[in-house]
Design a protein around this nucleic acid. Structure first.
Ligand code: MN
Ligand code: MN
Ligand code: ZN
Ligand code: ZN
Lengths: 134, 134
DNA sequence: TTGACTTTTATAATGATTACAAAAATGTAG
DNA sequence: CTACATTTTTGTAATCATTATAAAAGTCAA
């Protein structure tokens, strides 16, 4: 796992205590946590931590391309730090978000119908393997 | 363009005045309108129209698979009625949503890593051809 | 016409996110 | 070290989209 502090410095973000801890949390929790999840799990370590800081920090990380913000209709945003590209499966039964290996990003054109393409997000909808057993 | 009333009947939705008008609006406006857009454009035709009805109707349509709800982080939901599958480009400059021809859906497996796959959504992020000129 | 049922409507409530301004932390010149 | 400017964090209030609720209106068949 890459050093959180270094990642921030490379993106010209001063590595404050809160920012480093939030980034480390995302590195250690690839399960697409929400702002609420981050807050709930970190408030014991930093009792002064504010939800506003988490919102601000995750917005900053998203803008700098450090994390990916995953939108789910009508729900909170989920955040994803990951080194490698992957797609996601959104379970219609339990609402869970699962990583899916994918090679789609490999064949990205950087120009599609005149638009400049910077990235791609693939979301599958379906029933996850857990819910499927029932 | 398929008859809106018939589409609703096929999905066991009683074709009330409001539902038919909202579906027709979506058919005639493939530019991914929001609830606000629908309300703004239809309130003159039906002065009694309520925003709640639009929310309820679009949720119903989404559940029945008539329209597709497109989530954009931190913003309103956009709705898409369309016969054929296509991907979308989300412009980081102007926020616009553009249709992109895509054949990705053709090679969908119905089983990926144990999950049951029902659909796929592909979102490109980038700069649209309009913003690119500047 | 009555009454059951569906649909729409207006209003209030909720929940996520952002705006704002004060407090705390950090860095730097003297 | 101290004084001051700048950045970062924090708590609170405001905003915005969406949902809950219950009354009103519409539909339909006995
Ligand atoms: Mn992921
Ligand atoms: Mn579209
Ligand atoms: Zn599931
Ligand atoms: Zn654009």
């Amino acid at each position: 796992m890459r050093d959180a502090k270094r990642i921030l410095e490379e993106k010209d973000i001063s590595p404050s205590l809160q920012r480093v801890i939030i980034l480390k949390y995302l590195q250690e929790h690839p399960n697409h946590p929400t702002v609420e999840d981050v807050y709930h799990d970190l408030i014991d370590d930093i009792p002064t931590l504010s939800k506003t800081t988490i919102y601000n920090t995750l917005k900053l990380f998203t803008q700098k391309g450090i994390v990916y913000q995953l939108a789910v209709p009508g729900n909170e945003a989920h955040y994803d730090y990951s080194e490698g590209y992957h797609a996601h499966l959104l379970c219609e039964e339990c609402g869970g978000i699962f990583d899916i290996e994918s090679d789609i990003s490999l064949n990205i054109e950087n120009d599609l119908e005149g638009h400049l393409i910077l990235g791609i997000e693939v979301i599958y909808r379906g029933i996850c393997r857990n819910c499927r057993k029932e």
